[in-house]
Each structure stands twice: as C-alpha cells, then as structure tokens.
Nucleic acid binder design. Structure first.
Lengths: 285, 285
DNA sequence: GGCCGATCCG
DNA sequence: CGGATCGGCC
C-alpha cells in the first residue's frame, strides 16, 4: 500500500457504492514465457480481476495459456507476434467483442480491446518505444511513435460518445515532471520530450481521458513504473519513469477507488523492467 | 561407489604403500561459468585433489578463478579461448611447468600439461569431436580429429622414457565394445568407428599407456562417461559412451588404487552431458 | 542488462 | 538439447 486510497495488496473489498468492485492491472511483462513465476506471484499477491499484458513476445499458439488461466482467469484474449510486441488480456469476469486496430499499418500486435460486463470498453496498448534519437526525420522509430499517438488521438476523437471506456498499457511516454526522476535531464530523452508529452496531452483531450492513477496519487508525488535494467541498484538510484498508464472516461472518474504501482514486483527474481500498475474501479452493475 | 576398488565418494584415504594418495578427476564441464554450482557440488562430494576440465569455453581473464579456487585448490593452470574448447587444471598440490602444444596448428586450446610433485607429468586433452560424417575426405572435422590423434601419438612416441606420466581428458573416442551402449549400432558413428579406435590404440602403444580406469573396472563391464542431451531419460535409456579417459605410464600402473565414473553428476541440476571420471593414485613421494 | 531469433557447435 | 555469439530492440 503506497497511498491513502491504495488498492491494497490482497486487502478487503467492501463496496460503498452499488456497482461491482474490479481491480485492473497493466504490466509490460517483457516476455510472458520467461516470466511465469513472477507473474504468478504478482497475481497471487495483488489479485487483479483483469490483467493486461504488453510485450508478451509470443505467437498465439505458443502462449502459455494454461499457466496464466490457472491463476484464476477464466476469460482471455491474446494477440501476439514473433519476437516483438504482443498484448493480452486475462479476466475473472466475462470478456466480449475482442477487437484490435493495426495502427500505422505495420502489422504489429500493439493493441487489443474487449468489452467488460456493463458495456465498458477496455483498450490495451503497447505504444512504440521510439528509439534513441528524438527526431522524426533522423529516426524512423520516433516518427512511428508520433504517428501512432496521432492515430490513437484521431481514432478516439471520432468516438466521442457517452460509452464508458478504459485505456491502459505501456504508452512509453512519461507526461508529468514528477513522472521522471529528472525532468531537466530527460527533456531530450525519448519518452519525456516536449513533442511526445504534447501529443499525449492532445490524445487525452480528444477523448476527455482522465488519468485514473493520478486521481489517486497526487501529481506532485514522484511516481514511476519503469526502471532500466542497466541501472544496477535500481531501487536505491530510483532513476525511473512512469511509462505505464490507466485512463478512464469522465463517467468513470467517480468509480475510482484506488491506484498503485506494484513497485515490489520490479524487485522480484527474474523481474521485468516494468512494474505493474493497478486501479480499483467500482464498475456499473 | 560403483566398483570393488572404487574411489570412494569422500571415503577414507588409508594408504598401504609409501607414497602420497592423490585423487585425480577429469571432467568435460561444457562451460565452466554456467556450471559453477554442479562443479562445487562435485568437488565437495568427491573431493578430488586434482581437477582437470575441458570445454571451459571462456578466455583466461573471464575464468571464474575465485569460485573454483575457493573449493580448495590453491594451484591452477588455465588455457581458454572464446566460445569453444578451453582446458584447465586445478590442484591442492603444487603444480609446476605449465605447458601446451598447438596440435594441428589451429590455435585451439585443447591441451595443457603440468608437472606434479614427484616429477609426474600430467597432460589434459580435449580431442576434437570430429563432426557427424566418419569420412576424412568429406568431413574436415573428422580429418582434424584423426590428424590430432596421429600427432599425439608421434609426440609421445618421441618421448619414450622412464618419466611417469598421466594422460587424461575428453578423447572423444570410445575404444572398447563395452565403452558404448551398442557396439554394432555405433560402428559407423563418430567416436566408435574402427579407424578412430585403431588410431587411439596406436597412440596407446606408442607410449605404453595403461588405461587406468579399465585396470580397476573390468573391460567386460559396460562403462560410459557421456550421455547425449538429446536423449530424454538418459539414465533409463543409458545410451552412453566412454569418451573420457585417464591413462598412466607403466611405472604408475602399480600405483592405481581405485577408479570411478561419477555418474550421479550427470543427474545433477544443470548437468554437463559428461560425467567426471576419477582415479586414485599412490604417487611417488 | 536482458530478451528474442539465427547460427555454429557438441 | 543446450552451450556461445551476434544483431535487433527496449
């Protein structure tokens, strides 16, 4: 528990409102096959009801479905490719209407959406990292990233309606100054450059997205979800970035009951370089 | 303990003769860096005084010297290269005059010799495996193997003197019918072809070598030191081959006190595909 | 620093 | 099957 309104590691779930209390987690797992042990440990200890993964790095026929299913997820949707990217959604609640878009027409598996009970649309994203050089002319990966975010903005702008939606995943952008260990030193580092942050802001505005995690954990507070493998002593040095996000549409803002970055997971044996991010929502019944 | 005259896993060392009782082990460890745990376990349980390794697969500056030294070996000589081959000798007794030959002038690290107290010369070899096709014209690796053994024969033939010597290592040839799980099925399989077996025999004759292990374990008995990784259930199937050997010059024949293949080591976690081979010798004081 | 796949080698 | 290396990617 890191916040007053935290999600509570396996805590009680008393509900003050009328809906159904649901814990949603997003985690860039950096290869699901090699990470089954820490995944099991995370699920057993944090007990998410819905688990969204990125960078599964496995084609669908090779996905370790049984292992993940046996953690208590009766429902799932997966969408993977060889070597890179790959997204998946596991759920204790029924999932409907799995769908995806091929952003930038590259054939990448970077998006997967499902419908939750109560008509809530959930979108799981893995936004391109963008390479090293923050110049779209010199670096096609950065160009790809910017176009990807623009397309997301347009796509959701065209769907401004009253439908409750959740957008989450590894967006590979840390928007706030408190989302990085040093705003000044990262201004020219891909993930925190002004052009990326601005485009992410436009995307949020285009659909009135609410940053659910920052509704709970004040924007003044430092908060990270990723620490490089290259940093030895990542915990002490704490040179992190908040690249993983959970957003909700305005109608769900009042449903937020807690949020947390499961930082301890970054310290597990065989850890991913990302920590899971969680929110508790009181979903419409 | 597998034989009446076995070496005794950590047993007592009462000496009937005047010399110094020394336990010598040879093991193709198939990467020393990845095998430090089974190596430690083997050394703690079998307590060899001299440990000869092959296929260490590491250049000298990267050799995990401290880890192996801390198992009780105050003296050592190593000779490694990148990726392939590599030999090493560790010892509780002082080692003198490290030396080597570049057999077949390929720059391979396949040989290392030292002098033990009492003037005994110890030669640690990693003979080329020889590829798949047992035809020196069609397969340059097989040609290399045959020339390597020929050069060993000539080299030791030129040194027929009264000096006590030990030759050991992964010779990659199983000479006896009882050294393979099926003599008939392996006659055309590299490691047991007549041409290899004959060349190994000539090498033995050229220096009057005595097969120390077979002095203890009768040649009629099946005995293997290697089981392929590809065979699942290697222990049950037992499709092994005796590729690892310990030979001594005639003057040391009477010094042999025991011999053993540490087959259990092949069943360790993270096992090499070879098991260590050991002899106990009563070395001249 | 670490994961993936490809390639070489036993 | 399982070492080692290398280049791509993060």
């Amino acid at each position: 528990m890191t916040t007053a309104k935290g999600t509570g590691k396996g805590g009680s779930r008393r509900s003050a409102a009328s809906g159904r209390r649901v814990r949603i987690a997003t985690w860039n797992i950096n290869s699901v096959r090699i990470r089954l042990e820490p995944l099991g440990r995370f699920v057993r200890e944090w007990k998410p009801d819905i688990l969204c993964l990125q960078e599964t790095k496995v084609v669908d026929p090779d996905f370790p479905l049984d292992a993940v299913r046996s953690l208590g997820f009766a429902h799932h949707a997966v969408r993977g490719q060889k070597s890179y990217n790959g997204v998946a959604i596991f759920s204790r609640l029924p999932l409907a209407s799995p769908a995806f878009e091929d952003w930038c027409d590259k054939g990448d598996c970077r998006h997967l959406s499902v419908e939750l009970p109560g008509g809530v649309e959930l979108h799981n994203f893995y936004v391109p990292a963008g390479g090293d050089i923050p110049d779209p002319d010199a670096n096609p990966k950065f160009d790809h990233k910017l176009r990807f975010v623009d397309q997301m903005r347009d796509w959701f702008a065209r769907r401004r309606d009253s439908r409750p939606r959740i957008l989450l995943g590894d967006l590979n952008i840390a928007p706030l100054e408190t989302d990085v260990w040093s705003h000044k030193q990262l201004l020219k580092v891909v993930s925190h450059t002004p052009v990326e942050v601005e485009k992410l802001g436009r995307m949020m505005e285009a659909h009135d997205w609410v940053d659910a995690v920052r509704e709970v954990i004040p924007p003044e507070e430092k908060l990270y979800s990723w620490w490089s493998y290259r940093s030895p002593d990542w915990d002490m040095a704490d040179k992190g970035r908040r690249l993983d996000h959970i957003w909700v549409t305005p109608g769900l803002k009042g449903a937020i009951r807690g949020a947390e970055v499961a930082r301890a997971v970054r310290g597990f044996e065989m850890a991913s370089d990302h920590a899971p991010v969680l929110v508790d929502l009181e979903l419409p019944a």
